[in-house]
Amino acid sequence: MILAISPKPAAAAGLGEMTFDNKIESMKKAGVGPVIFSHTTHENTIKCAECHPDIFIEKRGANDMSMKKNMDGEHCGACHDSTVAFPMYQCSKCHTQVGAAK
């Protein structure tokens, strides 16, 4: 209800592209680089309430994301499981520098 009457602050705030690299050490070992997440693309097609606050806390860095949790169906994995959106084995759709170091 609150969501329905509130304006769209994020769209105006222009969160744009976010880079996630908290787990960069682990990513390097697997041969992938930081994740680029386009908040704009997602908020344009998906309602805020689909993600906030159930899947993601609405604060940069407040979500302890990892590939393991994605694979357990949390965070990005809640949708990117080949039923709602593209599956997670397409590493290079989210990660940069895929296959750089092995």
């Binding site: 697997a30 041969g31 992938v32 694979m71 357990d72 499981d81 080949s82 599956p87 997670m88 084995y89 397409q90 590493c91 895929v98 296959g99 092995k102």
Partner: peptide
Amino acid sequence: PISMVEIAEGKWCGRCHGKVAFPLADCN
């Protein structure tokens, strides 16, 4: 020298999984 990146490219386990055996999307 297996790696997930290469599996997703269709090497190693990816030679069959996603083709004739259960799909790679079923990570766990």
